[in-house]
């Protein structure tokens, strides 16, 4: 009787994984118990130590094992520029693609009123504290070019405006190597209205 309960508990616990329903959870549970007990133990240990050891960086909110992540602690970075992104993956993409040397602030989401995600859920109070405490001269808004990303960028702009800090937004436009004919109409019209003088 108690064994059945333990299995049921495991199946129920597995369902917290994204995209895993009751059927997949049952399959995974039986696989782990029948065929891969060693793997199951490793998974359990890795999960436990990650949950205990990984926290949000006190400065940029990204996931980090130390109180302040390696990037924020790096003295070589330019402390006058702050790039605001939605997720840690976005920060990594910018790191790989550009020679940006400033710091980041990771929102871990975006303003999405219809999902009930408001300003306090994306750490904007923490951002305000940083703006007061640090010598930041420029904010680069690199939220996604979606309606929610735009709403987030606008809100942060309003938040920063009284502080006399330069606020910039990343450009949206035609992908390099793309052909205008195949670009979707709203990207093209955005690129057209945001044209630059040469």
């Amino acid at each position: 009787m108690s064994a059945a309960t333990l299995i049921e508990q495991l199946i129920e616990a597995l369902r917290c994984l994204p995209g895993v329903g009751p059927k997949s959870a049952r399959r995974v549970a039986f696989h782990l118990l029948e065929r891969d007990r060693h793997g199951a133990r490793r998974l359990a240990e890795a999960l436990l130590s990650a949950v205990e050891g990984v926290h949000h960086c006190q400065s940029c909110r990204t996931l980090s094992e130390s109180p302040v992540c390696a990037l924020c602690a790096n003295p070589q970075r330019n402390r006058e520029q702050l790039c605001i992104v939605e997720t840690p993956v976005d920060a990594q993409a910018i790191e790989r693609a550009t020679n940006y040397r400033g710091l980041y602030f990771v929102l871990m989401g975006r303003l999405s009123p219809l999902d009930g995600i408001g300003p306090s859920d994306i750490g904007l109070d923490q951002l305000e504290k940083r703006l007061t405490a640090e010598p930041i001269q420029e904010i680069i808004l690199a939220t996604n070019p979606t309606v929610e990303g735009e709403a987030t960028a606008h809100y942060i702009n309003e938040l920063v405006r009284p502080r006399n800090i330069k606020v910039t937004r990343i450009a949206h436009g035609v992908p390099l190597g793309g052909e205008l004919e195949y670009v979707d109409s709203s990207t093209l019209s955005h690129a057209f209205s945001g044209r630059r003088e040469l």
């Binding site: 009123p113 219809l114 009930g116 408001g118 300003p119 809100y155």
Partner: peptide, 17 residues
Amino acid sequence: LHSRELMQRSSALITKA
């Protein structure tokens, strides 16, 4: 309504600014 809350918070920011 979540969007009403956001409207109120943004307009408070704008007035403050």
